[in-house]
Amino acid sequence: MSAPLLAAEGLTLRFGAIPALLDVAIDIAEGEVVAIVGESGSGKTTLLRVLSGMIAPDAGTVRWLGQDVHAMGEAARRRLMRTEWGFVHQNPRDGLRLAVSAGGNVGERLMAVGARHYGKIRAEALSWLARVEIDAARIDDLPRTFSGGMQQRLQIARTLVTRPRLVFMDEPTGGLDVSVQARLLDLIRSLSRELGLAVLIVTHDIAAARLLADRILVMRRGRVVEQGLTDRVLDDPQHPYTQLLVSSVLAA
């Protein structure tokens, strides 16, 4: 197997007396979809923020292609964040500029990396709106006039426009109704396959994890209690907490 894109080991972080992460290790290979599941407060989102360089851990390292993410300068980290990485927030309002049109939102990352041709930026924005199934006629509308599901799809288009290699997703389907969730999951799955994206997705929805992920990490109280291939973990859970988690999924 080739060297992993992102490799983290020994990650530990405490918020005062509360341990948020305890000796967490994780590897993500090129094109691999990894889900982190666990209950609220188990440290999933904190792990995502540490891996993406937003918070520095107390101990441990995060390496991107062998380079220490937390040791590189802020300029280099920001460049990484707008070229090779993407971050999809749970709440699309955190990831979008609400006062800027849909086209401007998609074009921002292109302009940030130096695109200076209006016609090409606009053509690229139109093609991405089509890929995430947003009507081309709405390219000049403000995102606040969009529905929740459309806003989330716009955020995905905005993140993927620079063709990142790794995308962090923090509960991208949270707060959406079930049919919209299903379409969004379908979209994420097809785009990640088509573009060969590596995706690190945080979710508490076991069904979503089964649909999307190649591998699963189960977190509880800041520790990874179990990890492995999705089908193995969900069909044959070893740890008592995973067993509880799997058995508490409601069957429709």
């Binding site: 800027v100 074009g107 921002e108 200076r116």
Partner: peptide
């Protein structure tokens, strides 16, 4: 990039 977004708009 932000300034160019404004001009784009």
């Amino acid at each position: 990039g932000l300034m160019h977004v404004r001009l784009y708009e």
